[in-house]
Nucleic acid binder design. Sequence first.
DNA 1: TTGAATTAAACAAACGTTTAATTGATTTTT
DNA 2: AAAAATCAATTAAACGTTTGTTTAATTCAA
Lengths: 206, 206
Amino acid sequence: MITDKKEHIMNAAIELFAEKGFEGSSIRDLATRADVNVAMVNYYFGSKDKLFEAIVEYKASFMRGKLDEIEANTELTEIEKIDAIIENYVAKILSNPSFHRVLHQELLMGDREAMHENIIKVFVRNTKTLRSIIEQGIKKKVFKKVDPELTMATLIGTINQVMLSKALCVMLINRENDFDPYTDRSFRDRLIKHLKQIMHSYLLNN
Amino acid sequence: MITDKKEHIMNAAIELFAEKGFEGSSIRDLATRADVNVAMVNYYFGSKDKLFEAIVEYKASFMRGKLDEIEANTELTEIEKIDAIIENYVAKILSNPSFHRVLHQELLMGDREAMHENIIKVFVRNTKTLRSIIEQGIKKKVFKKVDPELTMATLIGTINQVMLSKALCVMLINRENDFDPYTDRSFRDRLIKHLKQIMHSYLLNN
DNA sequence: TTGAATTAAACAAACGTTTAATTGATTTTT
DNA sequence: AAAAATCAATTAAACGTTTGTTTAATTCAA
C-alpha cells in the first residue's frame, strides 16, 4: 500500500532526481526538500536503490491504459490509431516530464543493467501495441513495407529528442533561454503536427 | 597542450563516465582504471568538473569537419547531401559511442545548465549545416515545406533512440541480450537504410 | 641543481545507513 | 472510564565509508 507520506517522498524524489540525477542527489537533500527526517527515507523504502525501484513501480502505472483502448477501437483506421497514439504519448510525457527524464537518465547508464529490467517492462507493453498496429497496417497494405521497429524508434526518438533536454531543445528550435518545451502549448501542437505529417508521408501508400 | 598522459586519463574517464555516469564515478575508480595515482587527475586538470570540461573540448573537435565539406559539395543534390549527412553522422557516433553517451547523460540533468553551454556549442554547428541544407531544398522546391527544426529532431532523435541505451535498443528490435548496436554492422546498415527511406518519403516532392 | 612528475598519506566534508530514544495515538487491561 | 500496554511514526545523533582535494615528501630526467 502506498501511503500519503510515501507518495509525498517519491514525488519529491522524482523532482530532485530529474534536476541532479540519481547519484547526484543525496538523501539529506531529499529529506530537506520533502520536509521529512533523513531516516524516514530508509524507514519507508529500505534504501536509496529501493526508493528508485518503488518510484518506477509507482509511476509505471501512469503510462498504461489508453494505448490498449486505442488499439482495440474498431472504428479507427490504422493511420488514425497512429495519430491517436502520437497525441496520447506526447500528452503522457508532458504530464510527467520529470519522471520521464529520470527514466532516461537511468537508461543512459551502461552499468546497472539489472536495474533496467523493471524500466524496460514499462516500455515493452507500449511498444508492443504500437508495433502490432504498424504490422497490421502493412498486412492490410494501407501502410508501406516499412521497418516497424525503427519506425517506432523514429516516433519515440523524435519526442525524446526535444523533450528530454531543455538546453538541446532551445538550441534546436532557436528560442530564448526561458522557453520551456514542457509548458509551451504551441510547441506541443507543433510537435504533434510534425509527427503526424512525417508518419503519414512515410507510412501511407498513395 | 594535450600530453599523452592527459589524453590517456581523458579516454579512461570517458569510458568510466559512460558506464557509471559523471557523479557515479569516483576519482579513485578513474585513477585505478587509468593506472595513475589519484592525485594526478587534480594535478593535470585541477578538479573533477574541469576534467569534464576538458573532455568536452578535447572530443568536440572529433565531431567537426566533414559536414561543411558535404554542404559545400556542389556536385550533390540536396537529398544526396542529406543521405551523406546520415551516413556521416551514424559513423561518427559509432566511432565515439562512449563520448556520445556521456554528452547526453549530462544533457539530461536539469541542473548544471551553465555547464551545458559548452556542449551546446558542439551541436549548434552541426545543426546549422543540416538546417541550411533542408531550407535550401525547400527554397528550390525539391523538398516539401517541412518543419526544418523538428525534421532535424527526427533525424538525430532516431539515431539517439537506438544508440544511447543498449537496453532500450535490445527491447525495441527484439534481439538477444548480447546484441550490441555499436558493433553490429548489419544493424548499422539497417539504421542508415531506414533513415534514408523516411527522409526521402518525407522531404521529396513527387 | 632546478623544476616538473609522481607518490603515499592525510584532510575535512558528505555520503548512505543505523541506532536508540521519544513521541503520540490506538488498543487492551484493570 | 482510567490506566497501562502496544506499536508504528519520528527524531537527533552517530556509524563507518567514501568522496574530492591537498599536502609534503620523493623520484627522475634535463
